[in-house]
Design a protein around this nucleic acid. Structure first.
Lengths: 135, 135
DNA sequence: CTCTGTGCAAAGCGTTTGCAAACGA
DNA sequence: TCGTTTGCAAACGCTTTGCACAGAG
């Protein structure tokens, strides 16, 4: 397991074993729900509390270390903060992929048309992945 | 108040006074949270229960009469089902606007590139509306 | 050494459920 | 009339809080 101490400290988060493990899981899995994260953490810390998971998730969000991804008709997942990107979600197996889509012209046109100062764009495409289409 | 009996029945929903009022509020407001809907309903039905609100919202969603809109960093709102569209949200006053954006080429390209059968696209642009920029 | 983080138990809050009475068709 | 809906109260599940102890810096 890579040492993520510096990654945490860059976001003003003390490096505790629990946080290092959460970070490692996020790097490895990419996207994860609270429930699955808790199950995975239990394997490493047999008496970890859900309260610890929630406290850390909330603190990590506040410090912009991670972000919540709200998915239509599904539970939220969390991911490490990275450059802006969109998501491709399989409605059957719930796999989530990061995809790079250029929304600049859409953002510019919409800003102009509605006199909005657009700060964030959030695109989620949902459907069936290659594997789930065949079942 | 317009009579929405037929709109409800087209979605296999019996026209009760409570449902007609919910429908009217949705037509009028466009987008509404559970909380605000309850407050508005209380003005018309002084003993309406939150359980009734939830039961109706859930049934209306099941019957595709309305849809949930999950907004990043904010509460969900509900809207009447209409043709696919995107949303523009003000992060300050929480106003939600429907916008028409052509995502066809993005959907096609992404489908091809990732071998996904994309069924839904969900785009939310967030920022400051004209009014809130000036404050 | 000091301040923060952890685990536990309890509390909180939004949502759902069960039931009897009221109502729509 | 019959099946559905309503309102109420209780239950539920997820999330947060308070506290004493442990641990990071």
């Amino acid at each position: 397991m890579i040492n993520y101490t510096n990654n945490l400290r860059e976001h003003n988060l003390k490096a505790t074993p629990q946080r290092l493990a959460i970070t490692d899981i996020l790097y490895t899995k990419g996207h994860i729900s609270v429930e699955v994260l808790y199950e995975m953490m239990l394997k490493k810390f047999n008496s970890i509390s859900l309260a610890t998971i929630y406290k850390n998730i909330n603190l990590m969000i506040e410090n912009s270390f991670i972000q919540e991804v709200k998915i239509p008709n599904a539970k939220s997942v969390y991911e490490l903060t990275k450059e802006e990107h969109s998501h491709l979600v399989c409605q059957k197996c719930n796999k989530v992929l990061d995809i790079k889509i250029d929304l600049d012209s859409i953002v510019t046109q919409t800003s102009d048309a509605y006199h909005f100062n657009i700060k964030n764009s959030n695109l989620i495409l949902s459907g069936l992945c290659q594997n789930c289409q065949q079942l």
